[in-house]
Amino acid sequence: MIDVLFSAFLLSVVLLGIHSYYGLHIIERGIIFTDLGIGQMAAFGAAVAILVFDGKYMYPVSLAFSLGGAFLIALSTKRTRNHEAFIGLLYAFGMSAAVIALSRAPRGAEEMQHLVAADILFVPMHAVFKTAILYAAIGTVLWLTLKRLRGTWRELLFFGTFSLTVTSSVNLAGVLVVFSILVAPAFIVSGIKRSFRTKLLLAWALGTVLNLIAIVASYFLDLPTGYTVVALYALSGIVFSLVRGL
């Protein structure tokens, strides 16, 4: 049993590694729902692939939709003042459009649930390794080049790699799982006045503990793993901010 739990745990750590990096950036920029917006557009793309192509070309269609979403968000942060409202609307559109698309596809409701929070216990080890290699490459490129770039190129690199990452993660783990892993640890450590590097390490440490608790709890209490991860991350963020507020 350990090996199945271990591959789920490894996947959650791989997701945590890259997404808490993006999370810290996104909280700094004040566009927290960007991930939900882009993730939901990726899910809409997956729904379109299911409906139109019989479930084939899921990844490229999904990626095209999330890149489109990212482009619109990047545009809105330049042009509109209330870009959170814009991102919220994009999320609502992606969500409703995916539901509409899947209402025409057999077993649409179940596919939808899968896109929201998939069962990470069923992700095979080779998919975990493939994702780990992809994210390590993306992470290295970002770490080396992002601080040297300015203006449009910087935005292009940031949102481009972000869409690529979110699309892969949503296909493996679902929109909500990705969102909670991205936001909760970054949110909790964002108040600390330390360097970016320290905050990232803290977010990793915190997320690893949360992953371990969530996966072990889901196994022993026999709960759906994806939703357990989401609930625990979200709850930790909420409890933390309440405690800090008091």
Binding site: L5, R107, D119, Y219, D222, L223, P224
Partner: peptide
Amino acid sequence: PHFVVPRPSFIGKLR
């Protein structure tokens, strides 16, 4: 019957 929500214990049972 077409869609059964899989739970972690199912894997243990099949093992």
